[in-house]
Design a protein around this nucleic acid. Sequence first.
DNA 1: TATGAATGAGGATTCATTCAT
DNA 2: TATGAATGAATCCTCATTCAT
Lengths: 198, 198, 198, 198
Amino acid sequence: MTDTHQPPRGTGAELKRAILDEARRRLESGGYPALSTRKIASAVGCTATSIYLYFNSKDALIHALIEEGFEDLNSKMMAAIEGDGPVLERLKDAARAYVRFGLERTAYYEIMFMLRPEQMERFPAESYRRARRSLDAFASFASVSPAEGLKRGTIVLTALHGLVALLIAQRVDAQLDREELIESAIHAACTAAVAPPF
Amino acid sequence: MTDTHQPPRGTGAELKRAILDEARRRLESGGYPALSTRKIASAVGCTATSIYLYFNSKDALIHALIEEGFEDLNSKMMAAIEGDGPVLERLKDAARAYVRFGLERTAYYEIMFMLRPEQMERFPAESYRRARRSLDAFASFASVSPAEGLKRGTIVLTALHGLVALLIAQRVDAQLDREELIESAIHAACTAAVAPPF
Amino acid sequence: MTDTHQPPRGTGAELKRAILDEARRRLESGGYPALSTRKIASAVGCTATSIYLYFNSKDALIHALIEEGFEDLNSKMMAAIEGDGPVLERLKDAARAYVRFGLERTAYYEIMFMLRPEQMERFPAESYRRARRSLDAFASFASVSPAEGLKRGTIVLTALHGLVALLIAQRVDAQLDREELIESAIHAACTAAVAPPF
Amino acid sequence: MTDTHQPPRGTGAELKRAILDEARRRLESGGYPALSTRKIASAVGCTATSIYLYFNSKDALIHALIEEGFEDLNSKMMAAIEGDGPVLERLKDAARAYVRFGLERTAYYEIMFMLRPEQMERFPAESYRRARRSLDAFASFASVSPAEGLKRGTIVLTALHGLVALLIAQRVDAQLDREELIESAIHAACTAAVAPPF
DNA sequence: TATGAATGAGGATTCATTCAT
DNA sequence: TATGAATGAATCCTCATTCAT
C-alpha cells in the first residue's frame, strides 16, 4: 500500500543501500511474505531488474540483512560484557542488550531468529554459526564446565527469545508494565544461570 | 504430489470436517505456505469453490484451526494442573504439557503463537483472549496477588515459548541433550515463578 | 504482433479448442519460442490463467497438439496403405500422404518431428512410440526380415523427412518445380526401399 | 555453472575471437537457448556491453557463427569431392563428409539448416546462398543437364538432411546400427542420383 | 448444496539492449 | 576500447476469490 515514493535513488552503492533499507522496512511491517522484488523496486524507485544488479537473488538480499543484523547484535553484546563488574551484573547487561536489540531492530531480529529453516533453506550454514556467538556470551559465565555452560547459556537465550518474540507478536498482556516485566524476566533468567536451582 | 485422493467427501458437515482435516494435515506437513485452497479442495475431492460454503475466506479456515488448537492446548494444561500434588510439581506438569504441545503439534503452535498480527489481521481479537487461559494456568500459582501472578505467569510463559520456538526453528545446539535441556529449562522457569528471586 | 483479436470464445470446450488452435497457429508462424501463454491468451480473448483450466502446463498443451498430429498422420497413412494395388504403388501413396501432411499441417509436423528432445524433455515417452507407427507403415513393405524392414523403412522415412523439413525451412531452390521434385524424391526413396541397391 | 572463468580476454581482435569461441562452445553444449549475451560475457571475462562493440546484435553474432559453419562444411565437401576416383565413390565421400559434419558439429548444423527463417529474419539472404554451394557439390555429378543436376542434387541433399536431422533429434530407432544405417542411406541416395530410377 | 468457468493480481527471474562515461 | 548502471518486456505459473447456474 505504501509503495511508490520513489524519491531516494542515487548512484550504485546508494541504490544498494536503499534496496536493503526498503527490504528491511517491508520485512518489519509485513514479514517475509511482504518481501517482493517488484514491491521493493517500485518503493525504492527502480526496476525489479535492477535489484539483481546488486543481489544474485531475493535470498541473497535477505542474507545480507541477516549478516548486518548479526554484526550489530554481536558488537552490542560484546560491548555489554566487557567490563569488570560482578558476573551477574555483566550477564544482565548482555541480556538487556539482547532484548533491546530484539525490540528496537525487530525486522533484523525476526529474520535472524524467527524464520523457519524451510523458508531459508539456501542460507549458508556458516552464517548461522554466528548466531552461536551471542549464545557464547551467555554460556561463558556459567563457569562450571563447557558443556554445563552451553546448557545454561541456552536456557538463558531461550528465555530471552521467548520474551522478545511474544512482545513482538503482541501476545503479552497490555496491563503489564513492559519495562518492569523485562527487567524481572532478565533477572530471573540470569540469576538462575549463575546459581541454578537445578 | 500426494494430492487428489478424493474418496472421502460426504454431505455438508462431513465435508466441512474433511476440509478442516486436510487443512490441518497440510499445515502440519508443509506449514503455512502449503495451505492453498485449491490443493485442499483437490485433496479432499471437492471444488475450491465449495470451501467458501463453509468458510468465508482462507483466513476463516485458519481461525477455525487456531480455535481447535487452543481447545486442545487448554484442555491438556487443565488436565495437568488439576491434581493434588505440590504446587511446583503441578506447575511443572503444566509446563511440560505446554512444551509437548508445541513440539508435537508444531503447525498448530505456529499459527497460534508465531503468526504475525499483520498476517492475521482479520483474526477476531476475542479469540486471542483464549490464549490467555494457558497463561492463567501459570499465573494462578503465584498466590501473592493477581497482578504479581500475572507477571510471574507471563515470565514462565515467555520462557517456555522461547524454548519451544527455538527448538522448532532448529536454532538450538544439536550437541545438547534435548530432553535434559527441556527439563532443566522448565525447572528453572517454574522454580523462579514459585519462589522468585526478584 | 497479430495478437488481441478476441472475438472467438464461447463455453468451455470451445475455449479449449480455440486455445489449441491459436497455439498451433503461433507454432506455425513463429515456432516454439512464439508459444507464450500470455500471447495465446490475449489472442484468444481470455486470461493466461484460463489456459491452466484446460491444460496443466504449457507442455501439456503442446503434448495435446502432438497427439492430435499423430492421430491425423497415422489415419492418413493407414488409409493410403490399405488397398490392393502393387506394393510399390501403395508405398508411394503412403509416402505422398506423409509429405502432404508435413506440408499442409506444418505446425503439427514441426512439433512432432523437429522439436529437440531437450526442449520437450517432459513429453511422455510412450507418446513418441506412436511416431514409430508411421515408420511401421514404411517398414512393413520391406518383407525380407523385420530387422531389414526396420532399416529400409527408416531410410525411407529419413529421406521423406529431409524433403519436408527443407521445404518447410525454405532451403530448397525456388527454381525447382515443387511437385516434380516431391514426386521424384518419393519415387527414388520408395524404389530403393522395395528393390534396394544395397 | 561452468561460467565465469574470466582468465582469457585480450585486446580487440582477441576479445572478438574469444566471444565467438565461447558462443560456439555454448551453442554446442546447450543449443540455441544457451546463447545468452550475459552468459557469454561473464564466461569470457568481459561485460555484456562489450559484445556490442564487435557485433551489432546477438543475431549478428549468430550470423558470424553460421558463416564459420558454412566455410567449414564447404571446405570439407570440396576436399571430399576433389579426387580422381569413380564418380559414385566421390559423391559418396562428399555425402559422408556432409553427414559427419552434421553429427559432429551438431550445433552448427542446427543453426545452418534447422533454424526457422522467421527466427532468423534478419539474416542476410546472400549468406544463405552459400548453403547452395554444398548442394552444388551434389548437383555437379548429375551431368545430364544443369536443371536435372539441380534436381538430383537436391534430392540427395534432402535425403541426407533427413538422416542427419532425425539422428540429431533422436527420432531413429535405437536398435539400428547407426553406422550401418548411415552407410546404407548414403548408398541409396547416391546411387539413385547417379543412375536414377526416375 | 455444490460446481464449472473465469479472473486479476502477483510471484521470481532472465533477456537483449542502451547510454553516459 | 571498454564498462557500470539501468531498463522494459517477457517468461511460466499460482494465488484467493467470485459469479451464474
